[in-house]
Design a protein around this nucleic acid. Sequence first.
DNA 1: AAAATACGTCAATAAAGCTGACATATTTTT
DNA 2: AAAAATATGTCAGCTTTATTGACGTATTTT
Lengths: 160, 160
Amino acid sequence: MPRQMSQNAARAELLATPMQNAGSIDFEIIELLFFAYRDFVSDPDQILIKSGFGRAHHRVVHFVNREPGMTVADLLETLQITKQSLARVLKQLIDSGYIHQVAGPEDRRQRKLYPTQAGRDLALALAEPQSRRIERAFEGASDATRESVKRFLRGMQTGK
Amino acid sequence: MPRQMSQNAARAELLATPMQNAGSIDFEIIELLFFAYRDFVSDPDQILIKSGFGRAHHRVVHFVNREPGMTVADLLETLQITKQSLARVLKQLIDSGYIHQVAGPEDRRQRKLYPTQAGRDLALALAEPQSRRIERAFEGASDATRESVKRFLRGMQTGK
DNA sequence: AAAATACGTCAATAAAGCTGACATATTTTT
DNA sequence: AAAAATATGTCAGCTTTATTGACGTATTTT
C-alpha cells in the first residue's frame, strides 16, 4: 500500500504526452541536426582511433590544411577553445610530424602553422568519408538546393 | 648556421597551399557543418551551466520529452553511447526531479522514462534559443527550401 | 530449471575540455 | 629607454563525458 501510494504520487507529476512542434518550436529539425552531426563525425572518428588521435586532432589538422600559415591565435578563435586545451593536441600533432611551426616573418612572436605532407594526407583521408556522406545526402539535388543548404548552414553561425 | 639549416630542412616538407575543393571533396560544406553545429549547441550550453548540467543532460531531457515512456535501451540506441555513460547523467536527472522512471506495464524489467513538469519546462527552455537560431537561418526561405534542408539532414544519417 | 534480457552499479581509465598562474620573447606605446 | 601589451608556451589541478569490463538483480523466455 505505501508503495502503491508513492507510485501514484509520482505518476501525478508525469507527462505522458510527447513534446511536439508547439509554440513555433520545430523540434524535428533540432533532432535532425543532432543526428546528422552525430553520424557526420562518426566517420573520421573510426579512422582516428587507429592513429591514437581524437576529434580534437581532426579539427586542428583540418583547419591548418585549409589555411596554411594560420597562427595559434587564429586556431583558438576558430575552434573556440582555450589555449591550454589546444596546447596538448597541437603538441602531439607537431611531435608526430603532421604539423610544423614557423616563426612569423613579420611578427616573430607568432607561430605560423603548416601541414607536412603526412598532415595533408591525413586531412584528406578524414575528409573523404565525410564528403561521400554529404554527396549521398545531396543525391539528386539541384545546384540551387545545394546553395540553399549552404545558406542555411551559414545562417546558423553566430558570426554569420 | 645550424639553426638556418634546420629551418630550411623543415620548410622543405611544408605545404603552403591551402587544401581546396579538389578531387570532388567539398571542404566548404564540411566546415559549414562544423560551425553551424558548434554555434547551435552553444546556446543551450550557456543555460545548462547555471543548472550544473551539461550537454549530455540536454540530450536525455530532450528525447525523453519527445517520446515519453521510452526505455533506457531506447535512449542508449538513440544517443549511441554506452549504458555506463548514460547511467550517471540519467541518475542526476532523476534525483533532481526532471525525469521519473516507471516499471514497464507489460515487461516489468523495463524502466519507462517520463518527464516531470520541471523536465518539460527545461526541455522547452533549451529548445527555444535553438529554434530562434534556426528561424534566423531560414529567414526568407520558402517552404520548399525548408523541406530541402530537412531532406539533406535526413540523408546525412547513417540509418537514413 | 536454464538461459536470456533489461537494468543498475562498481571500478578503472581516457579524451577533451576548463581555470589560474606564471615565464619568455617580441612588439608597441609612452 | 622604459613600460605595457601581445603571442605563445607550460605547469598544476580539475571537470565532464565518454570508454571497457565485471558483476548483481529482477524478470521473462525457452
